[in-house]
């Protein structure tokens, strides 16, 4: 719990005092108790997809071939699993590139959060406008997959936006850059602060 008056910009020593006494990390969304987890993953590079450290991208302008650079995490079928990450679209010379997915393993796409050439985030499956986005700035994305109720919550910048419903397990998280069926590269995006929790 944060419980201290702290003018921004004062010394680290003062900050350390405050932190040591009563500041606890609380990055994940929704009530826990959450337990941090580190699922295994594989990097998927298809077509012109590339990955270098935190940077992910597609160089091809193809509108018909598979183009992806994503990190695919291990599947899960039980419990509630939360993803958190910060993404900056550094360069967008394309359109309709998916940045984060909660995928139904063996069934198909489910939650897909993509960026448009007109600078907004949208849900690919239903077309919903999720949030305005300023290209070149970072945005925080949390998703929570509730396997018990087969729904996936989308949080953008700390605000609950919507749920994706009626999922079929098992599920897995993916992030990176992926050309959607009506999209095209190129794109370069930076993902940082990737965390997972479960309960």
């Amino acid at each position: 719990m944060y419980c201290k008056k702290q003018p921004y910009g004062y010394s680290l020593g003062t900050l350390a005092i405050a932190t040591g006494l009563c500041l606890a990390a609380h990055a994940q969304v929704a009530n826990g108790p959450w337990t941090s987890e580190s699922p295994g993953y594989k990097v998927q590079l298809v077509g012109s997809g590339w990955n270098s450290g935190n940077q992910w991208g597609i160089t091809s302008t193809s509108t018909s071939t598979e183009q992806r650079a994503e990190r695919r995490y291990d599947s899960f079928s039980t419990g509630t699993h939360q993803f958190e990450g910060y993404v900056t679209v550094n360069s967008l010379g394309g359109d309709r590139i998916c940045l984060k997915q909660t995928f139904q393993d063996g069934t198909g796409p489910w939650t897909m959060i993509a960026v448009s050439k007109s600078g907004y985030l949208y849900a690919v499956e239903n077309g919903d406008h999720l949030a305005n986005y300023t290209v070149g700035s970072n945005v925080r994305i949390n998703t929570i997959c509730y396997t018990g109720s087969a729904k996936d919550a989308i949080w953008i910048n700390g605000s609950l936006i919507e749920y994706t419903m009626n999922g079929t397990p098992p599920y897995y998280h993916k992030f990176g850059t992926y050309r959607t069926g009506s999209g095209a590269g190129p794109i370069t995006a930076t993902w940082t602060g990737i965390k997972f929790w479960y309960k």
Binding site: Y2, H26, W155, I161
Partner: peptide, 26 residues
Amino acid sequence: TEQNGPYTPLGFFPRGHNIFTHPRLI
């Protein structure tokens, strides 16, 4: 959601615009 960040923009507002509501929060 932590004092030391990372800080994320909620918006870029032109001079003269000085209100914002952050809704449906965690």
